[in-house]
C-alpha cells in the first residue's frame, strides 16, 4: 500500500445519480500529496458533483473515495462500513478547503470576520490569534489592509482571493477549486490565478476545475477530462492538451481554446 500512502485523494469507480439520472458513472482519479490535478470538461459533465463528493457535500452512491487514506463519510471497522456522524463529517470537511465559482463570502461579515469565522467556531482558535492569522493570509493573497471591507465593497477578483484566504485559514491539507475564475471579468482572472499558482508552488495539494487551459498546462501535474460522468482521457497536461487522442477531447478543446 505504499502508493496509497503517498496519495491525498483516490477515487475508484465513484458513482452518483440524482433522481434516476446517473451523473458520475465510475470516476477514477489519483492525486498525490502536493500535486495539482486539473479537471476539465463540458458543462454538465459532473465536475462540480465530483468535487462536492470529495468533501461530502454530496454523498456518492458507489465506489470508493479516499482522502488522506480515509474513506470519505465512512469508517471501515471489522470488515463493516460504518457511516460517520455529522460531527465527524464536519471535522473531516474542515481540513478540505473549497473555493466556489460565485465566491460565497459571508455577506454580513467583514473580510477579516470571514476569515476568522471558521478558525474561531470550528477550530476553536482564540479570537486574537485568529485575527493575526487572517491578516497574514490577507497579505499572502495581496489584500493587506482590506480587513474592514464588506464583500460587496470588493471587486470579484478581490472577493475570490478573500475566499481563498478563508479556506486557507482552516489549514487545509487539500484545496478544491470549482471554476474559481469563471465568474470574473477577464482582466481580473490573472490576479486569482497568480494566487493559486503561488499556492501550488508552496506544495498545496489541489484539485482545480477550470477552463483556463494555460493554467492547467503550466501548473497541473495531471489533467483529467471528464465527459458525461466518465474520465475520458487523462495524463500529463502538455501531452493531453497538445495531442488529445479522444475525438471528444479534441472537440472540446477546439471549442474552449
Amino acid at each position: 500500500m505504499s502508493e496509497t500512502a503517498s496519495l491525498m485523494v483516490e477515487a475508484i469507480g465513484v458513482r452518483k445519480h440524482f433522481a434516476g439520472v446517473e451523473v458520475l458513472k465510475g470516476v477514477d482519479l489519483k492525486v498525490g500529496r502536493g500535486d495539482v490535478a486539473c479537471l476539465i470538461g463540458p458543462s454538465g459533465s459532473g465536475k462540480s458533483t465530483f468535487l462536492r463528493c470529495i468533501n461530502h457535500l454530496e454523498k456518492h452512491d458507489a465506489g470508493e473515495l479516499l482522502v488522506d487514506g480515509q474513506l470519505v463519510g465512512y469508517e471501515l471497522r471489522n470488515g463493516k462500513l460504518y457511516e460517520r456522524n455529522d460531527k465527524q463529517i464536519c471535522a473531516e470537511r474542515a481540513r478540505i478547503g473549497m473555493v466556489f465559482q460565485r465566491f460565497n463570502l459571508f455577506q454580513h461579515l467583514t473580510v477579516l470576520e470571514n476569515i476568522t469565522m471558521g478558525q474561531v467556531r470550528v477550530l476553536r482558535v482564540r479570537e486574537d490569534a485568529a485575527r493575526a492569522r487572517a491578516r497574514e493570509l490577507l497579505e499572502r493573497v495581496g489584500l493587506a489592509g482590506r480587513d474592514g471591507y464588506y464583500p460587496a465593497q470588493l471587486s470579484g477578483g478581490q472577493q475570490q482571493r478573500v475566499a481563498i484566504a478563508r479556506a486557507l485559514a482552516m489549514d487545509p491539507k487539500l484545496m478544491l477549486f470549482d471554476e474559481p475564475t469563471s465568474a470574473l471579468d477577464p482582466e481580473l482572472v490573472g490576479e486569482v490565478l497568480d494566487v493559486m499558482r503561488d499556492l501550488a508552488r508552496s506544495g498545496m495539494t489541489m484539485i482545480v476545475v477550470t477552463h483556463e487551459m494555460g493554467f492547467a498546462r503550466e501548473v497541473a501535474n495531471t489533467v483529467y477530462f471528464l465527459d458525461a460522468g466518465i474520465i475520458e482521457e487523462w495524463g500529463d497536461p502538455r501531452e493531453v492538451l497538445a495531442h488529445p487522442s479522444s475525438p471528444r477531447l479534441q472537440n472540446f478543446l477546439s471549442k474552449v481554446l
Binding site: 457535500l57 460531527k87 464536519c90 471535522a91 470537511r93 481540513r95 466556489f100 459571508f106 471558521g118 479556506a167
Partner: peptide, 13 residues
Amino acid sequence: GQVEAATSIGMVR
C-alpha cells in the same frame, strides 16, 4: 451558497 460555504469550512448545521 452561503450555507455551502459555511458547511465547507466544517460548520455544523
